[in-house]
Structures are given as structure tokens and as C-alpha cells.
Simulated scan of single mutants.
Amino acid sequence: MNNHLLAEVTREEVQLATFQLGATKVPGLDGFNGLFYHSHWDIIQDDVFTTVQNFFITGVLPADINRTSICLIPKVPNPERISQQLGNVPDFETIAALLWQIWKARNHVIFRHHFTQPDQLVDSALALAHLHITVQNPHLQQQPKTGKKSPNPNTTWLPPVQGMIKVNIDGAFPIAENLGVISSIIRDHKGSLLRGFTKSVPATSALATEIQALLYTLKDLLQQGKHHSDLIIETDCIILVEAINHERLPPWECRALLSECEAILPSFSNMKVQHCRRSANALAD
């Protein structure tokens, strides 16, 4: 068996494989289909055999041989979504949302030791993709059916008005470890992702982690030259919002971090820090 696999390829084998090509199958970029090779075999057989033989000797296949051209055939007039062209193929937003949820689930395992069920991960990705699509294409939104409740705007992420930027921040603090994880997601009025980051930070409490999420976000916005932009920062930590708006006195161990944030805030022309429900902060969670 081994000798048979290591034997040199023969002309008969190459010819047999060539004549198994579908005669009318889609041609390559050169426009030649199987019928061309069948009809002109007596002329091209030496070139074909030499190319195949060189591959088995060198292991190198000319790049042009595997090049192809893909043409999308619309399933409906004036398609607006990839799924309207390729049938059951998911939209880019769905693929991107699924990859994002997988990445988040990986971080949850590493930093929180929390495992996400695969079906929950997929459901979250589909919901996120649907939100992104409807935000970017309001005309695609369907009116709620009679008898069904409209979605509660307080439980889903709402885009800012045109011209504004919304930043969602979050922090996670695993108990028994002096290490927290922060994340920040920046989006525009269309729901398009402008920037995002995640970072491990030293922390002694959940609140200290949440404050550092705000601190590093402020620094990042300054670095990106966003200090003159109209900004909204959302967090699901009500204590942080009340402390930064001077409605509550933070614990003494967090006051130094909060003072750092307060020292940076005057650098921004128009910024608002507000609370949102955790479900509306899901992308940064």
C-alpha cells in the first residue's frame, strides 16, 4: 500500500482524472470548462501532465489554478441584505455578533470562571445582530403584532441621536482575586462599532473595577481626540453614576480613583454619564 501511494503519477491517472471533470461545469477564470479539456486532450495533455507531475515532485501548485470568481445571484429585486442574495447564509452582522459572543464567553471562563451554554450564546448573538440591523435600517423594523407587548426601551440598548456617540462600559471583579476586567464599547447613532477595548486591572472591589472602566475609557477618548464630541457614557453600576454626579459619597477606598476621573471630566465639552439596565449594557458586559 505504501509503495502504491509513493509511486509516481502516470499519464493514465492524469487523463482519467481530467475526463472525470464535468463537461459543462462552471469554468475557471480562463473560461475553460471540462469540455475544452476533453475535446483538445491530444494538444494539451503534455502541459497538463507536466504541471501535475511538478506538483507531486515539488509540492508547489501554481496559484492561478485555485483562483475563482464568486458572483452573488439576488433572490429578490434590489437586495439589501446578504441573506437576500445567498438564501440561508447568515448576514455579516450575525457572523460578527456570534464571534463577539464567543470571545466574551471565553473571557468569562478565564476571568470569572463562568461557563455560558452554547444555546444561550447563539440566542444572545442573534439578538445583538437583530438590534444592529434594525438600528441601521429602521425601515426593516416590523410593527409588533396585535396582542403582543412592545419591547421595553429600558431593557434594550438605544442608539444616541445623530451626531452623538454612546459608550457602554462595564467591569467584572472575581471574588478571591485582586484582579478585575474592564471593557468599553463605542458606537454611533447607527449602532456601528467605532472602537472597543478590554483590559485586566488590579482591583480590590467590584466598584473599584467599575470606576476603572470609566477612568480608562476617559483616557482612551482623550487619546482618540473625542474630547469635543457629544458623548454619553452608560454603565449598569448605579453607585458609580451617583458618585460621579455627586449624588452619593463613594467608599473611602474608591475615592482616589474617582478623583482621577473627576480631574479628567472637565477636558470634555459635552459628556453625560448615565445609568442603564444590565440588559441594555449587554455588549460591554
Rank of each mutant, 00 (worst) to 15 (best):
Pro144Asn: 08
Asp123Cys: 07
His132Glu: 13
Thr134Asn: 04
Leu121Pro: 03
Gln142His: 11
His130Phe: 03
Pro144His: 09
Gln117Phe: 15
His139Ser: 08
Gln142Thr: 11
Leu121Asn: 06
Ser150Gln: 10
Gln143Gly: 11
Leu121Phe: 02
Asp123Pro: 10
Ser150Lys: 06
Gly147Asn: 09
Gln142Pro: 09
Asp119Glu: 09
Thr134His: 03
Ala127Glu: 07
Asp119Phe: 03
His130Gln: 08
Pro144Phe: 10
Asn152Phe: 02
Gln120Met: 08
Thr134Gly: 05
Thr146His: 13
Ala127Asp: 00
Ala129Ile: 00
Pro138Ser: 13
Lys149His: 05
Phe115Ser: 14
Gln136Asn: 05
Gln143Cys: 15
Pro151Val: 13
Leu126Met: 08
Leu140Ala: 08
Lys148His: 11
Thr146Pro: 13
Ser124Glu: 01
Thr134Asp: 01
Asn137Ser: 04
Thr134Val: 13
Gln136Gly: 00
Gly147Val: 03
Gln136Ser: 09
Leu140Val: 07
His132Tyr: 12
Ala125Cys: 04
Leu128Tyr: 02
Asn137Cys: 05
Ala129Asn: 05
Pro138Glu: 06
Val135Phe: 08
Ala127His: 10
Leu126Gln: 01
His114Phe: 14
Pro151Cys: 13
Gln117Ala: 14
His139Lys: 09
Phe115Leu: 15
Ala129Arg: 10
Ala125Tyr: 01
Val122Glu: 01
Leu131Pro: 10
Ser150Phe: 05
Ser150Cys: 07
Leu128Val: 04
Ala127Gly: 13
Thr146Gln: 13
Leu131Val: 14
Lys149Asp: 00
Ile133Arg: 05
Ala127Met: 14
Ser150Asp: 10
Ala127Gln: 07
Asn152Leu: 02
Asp123Arg: 08
Gln136Lys: 07
Val122Ala: 08
His130Pro: 03
Asp123Trp: 05
Lys145Ile: 14
Gln117Thr: 15
Thr134Leu: 02
His113Phe: 14
Asn152Gly: 00
Ala125Pro: 02
Leu126Tyr: 03
Ala125Leu: 04
Gln120Thr: 14
Asn152Ile: 09
Pro118Gly: 07
Val122Lys: 00
Ser150Leu: 10
Lys149Pro: 06
Val135Pro: 02
Lys149Tyr: 01
Lys145Thr: 15
Leu126Ala: 03
Asp119Thr: 08
Leu140Asn: 12
Pro118Arg: 11
Thr134Trp: 00
Ser124Ala: 11
Gln136His: 04
Leu128Thr: 04
Lys148Leu: 08
Lys145His: 14
His139Phe: 04
His139Ile: 10
